[in-house]
């Protein structure tokens, strides 16, 4: 490669280099053209693990149908107390812009005096993207979900308590709960109410059939509570109503195997016809044989 000495050439090279770099980053990203959706959510699951989820997506400001998830962005999940920050994990977002983390039941958190836990999901600033941070503050709540038939009335009870610093149980007040029955694709709400003195009870009046064994899956959920976040508890019970499963249809017009009589009729007709054909063919061959015999016998008499 010849060394380019000419000043003009040098400038041209620089311009070209910049232009090509710009060209490479042709779809130049300007943060202002987009609305940022950075959502941090938390759910305490049935097995008492805690699931954290961050969804980081940019939506085009003008064309709202265009969405770009942020891929391989590093999200730091942090447990914060005053100035102390403990990094729980660092997770990269998927192609859908989602980063998830599941914390086990026995996870130790830093709690403040009132027992609140603060979790932060942080995305650190890069050259092109602003920093993002969202915080969830919650108290750990313990649910006791019971289904029982009391005096032949199907009763569903939910008891909830929190623990104070000394480990004593405090009954929960004024907290909304919703109850669902789970299906294959979704859950159906059957009741909702408010926990009073740490307890809520109602009668199950629906007549759903449940699964093939008559089992129904019940969910008790606290949704978007400012103190407790999202909590869910699940229980199965065989309160499914009797229902008849339609019998499997065999040997019909629509099944793989036809009704028996069709096979019989078809076989009968075909045998009839083909037997006739075989008879004719055999007779022809017999005719040929008899001709040969006749020839040996002597000349043909008559016409």
């Amino acid at each position: 490669m010849k060394i380019i000495n000419n000043k003009l050439s040098r400038i041209i090279v620089i311009i070209f280099a910049i232009a090509s770099v710009i060209n490479t980053y042709a779809q130049e990203f300007v943060q202002d053209n987009y609305r940022t959706f950075y959502n941090f959510s938390m759910l305490k699951q049935d097995d008492n693990t805690r699931s954290l989820k961050v969804r980081y997506v940019l939506q085009h400001a003008e064309d709202k149908t265009v969405e770009h998830p942020v891929y391989k962005a590093q999200i730091k999940f942090i447990n914060k107390l005053d100035d102390q920050e403990v990094i729980l994990a660092e997770v990269l977002t998927s192609k859908n812009g989602i980063a998830t983390l599941t914390l086990p039941e026995n996870q130790k958190y830093l709690k403040d005096k009132e027992g609140n836990i603060t979790l932060i999901a942080r995305f650190e600033e890069t050259e092109k993207l602003e920093a993002q941070e969202e915080e969830i503050m919650f108290k750990d709540i313990f649910l006791d979900f019971n289904l029982a038939e009391i005096d032949s009335v199907k009763t569903i009870t939910l008891n909830a308590y929190t623990l104070n610093n000394k480990g004593e149980q405090l009954l929960v007040e004024e907290t909304d709960v919703a109850f669902y029955i789970g299906g294959m694709l979704s859950k159906m709400k059957i009741n909702d109410g408010t926990l009073e003195s740490g307890s809520y009870e109602f009668e199950y009046e629906h007549n759903l059939p449940g699964d093939e064994n008559g089992l129904l899956t019940f969910y008790a959920q606290i949704e978007d509570h400012e103190e407790f976040g999202n909590v869910t508890k699940m229980k199965t019970m065989n309160w499914g109503v009797e229902h008849s499963v339609p019998k499997k249809v065999k040997n019909s017009l629509w099944s793989k195997n036809a009704p028996g009589w069709m096979y019989a009729v078809l076989a009968f007709l075909l045998i009839l016809v083909w037997a006739n054909y075989v008879y004719v063919v055999i007779s022809l061959f017999k005719l040929k044989k008899s001709i040969k015999k006749d020839l040996y016998k002597g000349p043909i008499q008559g016409n």
Partner: peptide, 28 residues
């Protein structure tokens, strides 16, 4: 090389990388 396509769906989506690059990848 940063973004390699694994079992692709054939459908492309445009994602943004942390350094502000709009890239087309196969949707999961």
């Amino acid at each position: 090389n940063l973004i390699s396509d694994q079992d692709g769906s054939g459908v492309k989506i445009k994602v943004l990388t942390p350094d502000g690059q709009m890239v087309e990848v196969d949707a999961e």
